[in-house]
């Protein structure tokens, strides 16, 4: 109890493949927690488990003390967990504004009368404009999602996640594919979001980005947690170094 997010002895098997084995850690409110590990370590799988894409094989995931078992993605989203994707998935054929409006409607998708009401109101459009302004997409509201460059698609995904009014957002490799100055802007944006009281769980391969963002890091390798602690301790941890170097040996 008391933790924002509690990963409690979570195991996930995909038909014999052990993607995660007895992983446990907790996350506190207001924290930016880094989740790192070599490719195939199970990081994205953990995001998919948190968001309810598929069930855990064993163990439990609790959010603000509530067990998320059996909830399914739309309910988890409504509870206040937003996410972005390692391979971006904006709504390609919808405008940037509509992309954000979809998630702003989260409380309208449950009751009949709420879901039949109009979605373009002064309030919702103002909220969408505010969110787009925050991520620097204010003047691109009418652009199609598919017509943005990668860096802006990633920002659009962040705006869409924020539109859920989440307590926690999960960022899956937000700096992947970004240029240097885009990375700096991203770090500023994540800090700003965190400054508003939204907790952030971030998967990231770019070590400087992780080191600058996070005070605490969890390391996964081959589905198990091999380390947890502040960046300095992680950097010097022999097991972590071996996990990363071992991977380079394979390559």
């Amino acid at each position: 109890m008391g933790h924002l997010l509690e990963i409690d002895d979570v195991t996930k098997h995909f038909e014999g493949l052990k993607a995660l084995e007895n992983v446990s850690f907790t996350m506190e409110e207001g924290e930016i927690l880094g989740l790192i590990g070599p490719n195939g370590a199970g990081k994205t799988t953990l995001f998919n488990l948190i968001t309810g894409t598929f069930p855990v094989t064993s163990g439990a995931i609790r959010f603000n003390g509530t067990d998320l078992a059996g909830m399914g993605p739309s309910k988890v989203a409504a509870l206040g967990i937003g996410r972005t994707f390692q391979i971006v998935r904006p709504f390609a054929g919808l405008t940037v504004e509509e992309n954000v409006l979809v998630a702003l409607g989260v409380s309208h998708y449950t009751g009949f009368w709420k879901s039949v009401s109009r979605y373009r109101t002064t309030d919702t459009l103002a909220a969408a404009r505010e969110l787009l302004g925050r991520v620097g997409l204010g003047n691109l509201a009418d652009r199609k999602g598919e017509n943005l460059p990668l860096g802006l698609k990633k920002r659009l995904e962040i705006a869409r996640a924020l539109a859920l009014r989440p307590k926690l957002i999960l960022l899956d490799e937000p700096a992947g594919g970004l240029r240097k100055e885009e990375m700096d802007q991203l770090i500023d944006l994540v800090r700003e979001i965190n400054g508003e009281g939204i907790s952030v769980l971030v998967i990231e391969h770019n070590m400087p980005v992780v080191m600058r963002l996070c005070r605490r890091i969890v390391v996964l390798d081959h589905g198990t947690k091999i380390a947890e602690g502040p960046p300095e301790a992680i950097q010097g941890n022999p097991q972590v170094i071996e996990a990363y170097l071992g991977r380079e040996d394979d390559a």
């Binding site: 739309s74 409504a78 998935r89 309208h108 879901s115 009401s117 109009r118 373009r120």
Partner: peptide, 27 residues
């Protein structure tokens, strides 16, 4: 013009992103 219509459009565009945005696919 309704939220329901927007929900349908989001499903058409990307089911995974739609449900992570709070849209119940089945419903």
């Amino acid at each position: 013009r309704s939220w329901a219509g927007l929900a349908l459009a989001s499903i058409r565009e990307d089911e995974t992103a739609a449900e992570m945005s709070g849209v119940n696919l089945t419903r």
